[in-house]
Design a protein around this nucleic acid. Sequence first.
DNA 1: CTATGTTTGTTAACCGTTTAACTTTTTCTG
DNA 2: CAGAAAAAGTTAAACGGTTAACAAACATAG
Lengths: 353, 353
Amino acid sequence: MDKRVTIRDIARKTGVSVATVSNVINGVNKASEQTKKIVLQAIKEMGYQPNLTARSLSVNRSRMIGVLLPIDESTSASLLLRDNPFYGEFISGVEYQAMMSGYDVLISGFRPGQSCREWILKRDLDGIVFVGNYTAAVSNDAKEFGSQLVLVDSYDEGLQKHHSINIDDVQGGYAAAKHLLDLGHKNIAIAASNILVDGAIYRRFCGYKDALAESGIFLRNDFIFQDTLSFDGGYRIGLRLLEQTDKISAVFAVADIMAFGIIKAFYENGKQIPRDLSIVGFDDIKTCEYIIPPLTSVHQPVYEKGITAVNILVDAIKNPDIPKRNVLFPLKLTERGSAMNFCERRVCASASL
Amino acid sequence: MDKRVTIRDIARKTGVSVATVSNVINGVNKASEQTKKIVLQAIKEMGYQPNLTARSLSVNRSRMIGVLLPIDESTSASLLLRDNPFYGEFISGVEYQAMMSGYDVLISGFRPGQSCREWILKRDLDGIVFVGNYTAAVSNDAKEFGSQLVLVDSYDEGLQKHHSINIDDVQGGYAAAKHLLDLGHKNIAIAASNILVDGAIYRRFCGYKDALAESGIFLRNDFIFQDTLSFDGGYRIGLRLLEQTDKISAVFAVADIMAFGIIKAFYENGKQIPRDLSIVGFDDIKTCEYIIPPLTSVHQPVYEKGITAVNILVDAIKNPDIPKRNVLFPLKLTERGSAMNFCERRVCASASL
DNA sequence: CTATGTTTGTTAACCGTTTAACTTTTTCTG
DNA sequence: CAGAAAAAGTTAAACGGTTAACAAACATAG
C-alpha cells in the first residue's frame, strides 16, 4: 500500500550517494550538471516527495506554523470561528501567505488552562500566531523553545517585547463617533460589552470619548450601555434605547453584531433606522452589506492582518534577531445607510407625522 | 535556547533504558510499578514532552489530519472561508473533534491543478477531510499512500467507494418549496446559480421541482432565474423579479446570500418582504437571524458535519477496513419572517392601497 | 611534473522515537 | 530445589532525511 519512495531509492537507482541526492534536492551546489540532471530525472520518474517529517527531525525545523485561536468561553469547546465570520477571513489570509512562503498551518483553539509549550514541543512548530488575549506564559513558552511568536489583537500594552499586530481601536472609536458628530448628532450613546474587561472595547470607548470631548460634549454616564458582546446583548440594549429616542439620536456599537441586535429591536417595535436612530458599527463584517439598511461600520482589514502576521512570523523565523515589529492598522469608516444627518432626520420624522 | 528534554535524558536520569521509558510513556505493560513511578516522576520533573515528529517518523503515523478546502476561483488565492462564514463553522467542528480524538489539524486550500498526494506524502497525514468537488485523483492519492479520506459535500454519485458526508439537498429543496406551497403560493420562482454546473444546486432544484409536481403545478421555465451564486447575483435576480410581482408571489433562493441580494433589490425599490414577495433561503447562515425580516431558510448542520467528518475519519484511521460510511444529513427548514401566507398577503397588500 | 586548489563526490553520525529480538531476573510449579 | 514460565528490562536497528568531515578526480599554475 504505502509505496513511499525515499532518498535512498533515488540514490540506488542513479548510482550516487544519498548525500548527493540530498544536496541536489536542496540546491546545494556540489554536484555536476550531469549528475544533477540524472538525479532530478529519477526524482521525477519515481514520483519522489521529500518527507518533511524526517527533515524536521533532522534540522529541528518543521516548516509548520501554528495558529492559536480564542475559544467560545461559554462552551469551552468550539473555536470562536463558529459564530464569528471574522476569524475565518483571518485564517484565510494566514493560509494564503503561509502557502506562499512554503509553510503549512496548524490550527487549534487556545483553551483555558492550556499552555502552548506542549504544542510547540510536540510538533516542532517554527512559529505561532497567537490571536486574542495574550498571557505571559505563552511568550515564555515560545521563547524557551525557539519558536517565533506574533501576537494578534493581544495588545501587549507593556514593553513591546513581541511582534504584534493590532488595529487602532482608539482611532476607530474616534472615527465612529466623529462620523456621527459630523452628521450633527449631539446625543450619542455607546453600546458596548463590559468596558473594563476587554482591552479592545475599552480602547474603542476611549476613542469615542475623545471625539465627544473634542466637540465639547460632556460624556454622560447614562449614555453608556453595557451588555454581552453578542447579537442578544445588542438586542437588549436596543430595547433600552427605544425608551429614550427623545434623548438619544445616535449610537456607536462597538461590534457589528451588537448593532444588528439593536436594529432588530427597533424594527420589531416599528421604528426605523436611520430615521429614529443613527447607528455606526465596528468590524465591518460581510453581513453589514446585506442588512437593511446596510450598516455603516468601522472597517478592519482582517484578511490583511492574516497576511501580515505570517509575513512577520516568517521573517522572524528566518532571522530570529530582527527587532520586534509592532504593526498598528489604521481603521477607516465605511459609510453605508445606517447613519443620517441629524437635521434631515427631523425633517423626515415630522414628514411622517 | 532550545532545551528539549528527550527520552534519553529521562533514561539517563532514572537509570533505565530508553526502551523502558518509551514503554512507560506508551502504556506498554512491561515495566514494574516501581520503575513506572520513577519514570513518570522524572518525566514530570524534567518537563518532558514526546516529540511527535520523531514518533511520526518511527511509526509512520503523524496524528495529524488535513482539511482541504475549496478556493475562491476568481482570485485562485484565498480560501472560500473568506466570504463564507459557513466554512469557519465547519472548521470549528473539525478542530474540536480532532482535539478530542488526539489529532492535530492542518488546513489548506485545494488549488486548481494541485494534487493532495504531495501533502499526504510530505506530512505523513493520517487522513484528510476533503471539502467540495471531488476528483478521482484525490482518492487515488489517498488510497495509494495509506491516508484515509472523508469527502464532504462532494456527492460522489458513483459507487460509494469513499466515506462521505452530505446534506440531503433534494429533500432540502423540497422542504423549501413545500413550505411556500403550504402557505398557499402557486407561482414560486427559483433563484439559483447555473443549475447544470453545480451538483448540489441541481439537487436543490430537483427537490423544488418535485414539490411543485406533487402539488400538480407545472414547472415554468421563465420561473427559473439563474445568476452567480453571490449576493450580487441575487441582487440582479431581485431586479428581474421586481418586474413580475404580479405573476410571482414567492421565490426559493438556493443560497442565503442570493436571498439577501433579492431582499436588497426589493428594499431599494420600496417593496417589502414578505408582503410583496415571500422568500425562503438555503444554508441558514448566522446572518439569517440578523437580517430584516429574518430569513426563513433550510438549515444545514455545518458544525455537526465537521464533528462527524472527524469521527468517521478517526474510525477509518484506526481500522482501515471498516466498510465505507455515507452520511446524508436530513435538513430542516427554520421558519422566520420572510415567507407569509399567500392570502394574508393579499389582505395586507390591499390594506396598504 | 609537482604542488595546489577546485569540483564532485562519499561516509557515517545524528535528529528522537519505536519495537523486534534478546537477556536477565523473578515467580511459580511439581 | 530444579526447571519452566512469566515479568522486567536491554540492545540495536529502523524510520527518512541532513551535514560535517573526509576523499578522489580533475584542472591550473609555476
